[in-house]
Amino acid sequence: MNVTKPLPLAGVCVVEIGHSLAAPYAGMILGSLGAEVIKVENAEGGDYARDWGPPFIDGAAALFHAINHGKSSIAMSLADQREAGLLRELIVQRADVVLQNLKAGGVEKYGLGAAQLMAAKPSLVYCNLGAFGTSGPLRDKPGYDPLVQALGGLMSFLGGPGEPLSRIPVSVNDMGTGLWAAIGVLAALFRRQATGAGEAVSVSLYETAIAWGGVQIADYLASGVLPGRWGSGTAAIVPHQAFECADATIMVAAGNDGLFRRLCGVLDIAALADDPRFATNGARVTNREALIARLQQAFGAKPAAHWLATLDAAGIPCGPIQSIDQVVVHEQTRALDLLKTTSDGAATIVGLPISFDGERPGAIGKTPKLGEHNHLLAQTAQETH
């Protein structure tokens, strides 16, 4: 008989003093790995993300369910000294980890900053998720994902030549910062096993954006040339982009000379692989426009299904460009069991993209109502007195 293992963070308690996306996303990751996550929300309306819809499910935005399922919710006013004191006691009594993404200086004035809480509980792992980091001229400036995509340089190389500037329509810096927070917290918890001491972890949206652009920054510092805007393509590999077939668009990634030679054979333009302008990847990058025009001409002659089958048979990486409705019913998505339903059946969300011994964490708790777990503060008050 197979016995399901406890999740890796079973027994760990996380208090999330956060809103919107970055800290809640980190909390969702830690919670999906087995931690108990106690979410602290403003009594007046709760987390802003509760209203980030439509669509809404049970009065909260679908986005809120996706990021906050399985947590407990305490609704309170941090400005109320008694309530802030109870939260402090709850953290000292129960928490292993605190996540916070309030504006700079916000938690300190309530006695809930890293130094303040770690003085009372030295084993605490405390993670600050900020906008621009803990030093520098922008450290106190509020920040949101689109702003940081702009300031961090990401928008400068998105889209195609001559197109209006655009942002990635996913909150990559919020979610990426949540990922870095989870990594930092896990590393600190691992070190605590050896030392017994907690520590303060700091991450920010701006640092995350700079990290996403790490390859482009390294290229620029080496060459002095700013990154181009290549649409579906990439700067350093050609051909590695979308092509329009007779009836639809497909993605093709012929990432080395051997794959390019095979691609030319499939497209019945084999001589192109021996043309000095295209024989190596460096040459193909230099002569990108001439090559892409020739390949596009060939792809446009036949429908997508023909090219996908032929490219697959030749071992050339390729695929259709799917819309979300196609993704959620795709047999690969179903085979991986990625879509999960909350325990109350209210919402379907994307599960954690990690498996342990072939098993994906699957205990998806329901999304809390605002203040549903305020009894935790009442218990703390009773235990304190």
Rank of each mutant, 00 (worst) to 15 (best):
V12I: 15
V15K: 07
G18P: 01
A23F: 08
A26M: 00
G27T: 09
M28E: 12
E41G: 13
E41C: 02
A43T: 05
A43R: 07
Y48H: 15
F56P: 08
A60P: 07
A60D: 15
A61R: 06
G70P: 10
I74R: 10
A84R: 06
I91C: 13
A95I: 04
A95W: 09
L99H: 13
L99C: 12
L99A: 12
K103L: 14
G111T: 11
G113D: 15
G130R: 15
A131T: 07
T134V: 07
D140E: 14
P142Q: 15
D145G: 07
Q149H: 10
S156D: 14
G159P: 00
I168S: 13
P169Y: 00
N173M: 14
T177C: 15
A182E: 08
R191E: 15
E199K: 04
S204A: 06
Y206T: 04
I210F: 01
G214F: 00
V215S: 01
D219A: 15
G233D: 06
A242N: 14
A242M: 12
C245M: 04
C245T: 10
D247A: 09
D247Y: 02
A248P: 00
I250N: 08
R262N: 00
C264V: 05
G265R: 05
A271I: 02
D274W: 00
T280A: 09
A283Q: 04
V285R: 03
N287Y: 08
Q297M: 10
K302V: 13
K302W: 09
W307F: 09
T310G: 05
C318P: 02
S323R: 12
S323H: 09
V329A: 04
Q332A: 04
D344P: 01
G345A: 03
I349Q: 01
R360C: 03
G371F: 08
G371Y: 01
L377T: 09
A378L: 03
T380A: 15
H385P: 11
